[in-house]
Amino acid sequence: MDQVGLGDAVRALGTPPAVPSGLRTPDGRWLLGAADDTGPEFVVVHRAELHRILTTAAPPVRPATVTRVDTSAHSATVVSDTGETTEFDLVIGADGVGSAIRRSWPADPGIRYAGYTAWRGVTDGPFETPAAGETLGRGGRFGIAPMPDGRSTGTPPRRHRPTGGCPTSGPS
């Protein structure tokens, strides 16, 4: 975020979690703890707040369907379905699992179903989170992190096999 002048705005949303963090087993045993010197570069922020910072800093653009992004060493050119081109210093590809922006990237790895679906959630009010990170277990994992306002965010995944194979479009 510092490279695009937004680091201070993101850091102003909060401080690094003041709880231990890392990877744990279901019984709470630590497998890997984060270094104590992760410092101010690591902050947990609400996704909507991050979107607000990004959209406030971005220049106004007309809605368009992006078909590809051409990049050079110092800029990116967005090409719309009408053929219109617009040059930017930075393009953030947040257009979902069927991303045209990702597909236009030279090193696009494509998409691969990981075997589970993860939901993201944020508690409505304060929720004490004694530790942050992920708990890994046989066939499952759960991530949780405290937010600066006392709420917590979590990612409880569910393993399943989708019908019809790997999803290639739709909401992300």
Rank of each mutant, 00 (worst) to 15 (best):
88 F>H: 08
127 F>W: 11
92 I>Y: 04
91 V>M: 02
134 E>A: 11
94 A>S: 10
110 G>I: 12
36 D>E: 14
55 T>A: 13
75 S>V: 08
126 P>I: 05
13 L>H: 09
40 P>H: 09
15 T>E: 15
91 V>F: 00
82 T>A: 13
79 V>Q: 01
41 E>F: 02
58 A>D: 09
112 R>H: 14
18 A>R: 15
66 V>K: 02
74 H>A: 12
99 S>F: 07
131 A>M: 12
90 L>G: 04
67 T>N: 03
72 S>R: 04
122 V>S: 04
83 G>K: 02
29 R>D: 15
82 T>L: 03
75 S>L: 02
59 P>D: 14
86 T>C: 03
55 T>D: 12
90 L>P: 00
116 Y>R: 13
104 S>H: 05
124 D>K: 09
130 P>L: 04
53 I>M: 01
49 E>W: 00
108 D>H: 10
24 R>V: 02
32 L>G: 05
38 T>G: 01
136 L>G: 03
18 A>C: 07
47 R>W: 07
90 L>T: 15
61 V>E: 11
47 R>D: 07
88 F>A: 05
128 E>V: 11
17 P>Y: 03
57 A>E: 05
37 D>M: 01
116 Y>D: 14
138 R>H: 14
19 V>T: 13
22 G>A: 09
78 V>G: 00
13 L>W: 03
17 P>R: 02
27 D>A: 14
133 G>Y: 04
73 A>L: 08
124 D>A: 11
33 G>L: 13
14 G>L: 02
129 T>N: 07
114 A>I: 06
75 S>Y: 01
123 T>R: 07
26 P>T: 10
116 Y>M: 10
60 P>K: 05
105 W>F: 15
40 P>E: 12
84 E>Y: 01
133 G>R: 02
18 A>P: 10
43 V>C: 01
59 P>Y: 00
110 G>L: 09
19 V>Q: 06
116 Y>T: 13
89 D>N: 05
123 T>W: 07
94 A>H: 03
33 G>N: 09
96 G>C: 10
126 P>H: 08
138 R>P: 13
134 E>L: 06
22 G>W: 03
61 V>T: 15
98 G>N: 04
87 E>R: 15
109 P>G: 13
28 G>V: 08
95 D>K: 01
138 R>I: 10
60 P>R: 07
38 T>H: 10
15 T>C: 03
57 A>S: 13
46 H>Y: 02
20 P>S: 11
117 T>V: 11
67 T>A: 05
14 G>Y: 01
51 H>P: 07
40 P>R: 13
80 S>T: 15
101 I>P: 03
14 G>S: 11
35 A>P: 09
88 F>G: 01
21 S>Q: 13
55 T>S: 11
124 D>N: 10
80 S>F: 00
71 T>R: 15
104 S>M: 07
83 G>F: 00
75 S>N: 07
14 G>M: 01
106 P>W: 10
73 A>N: 08
109 P>C: 09
61 V>W: 00
58 A>K: 05
28 G>Y: 13
138 R>W: 12
95 D>C: 11
60 P>I: 09
92 I>D: 03
26 P>G: 12
127 F>D: 05
20 P>M: 03
77 T>A: 03
71 T>G: 04
111 I>F: 05
96 G>M: 06
137 G>E: 09
82 T>D: 11
66 V>T: 08
76 A>K: 00
138 R>D: 15
48 A>T: 12
42 F>V: 13
108 D>A: 14
74 H>G: 06
48 A>E: 08
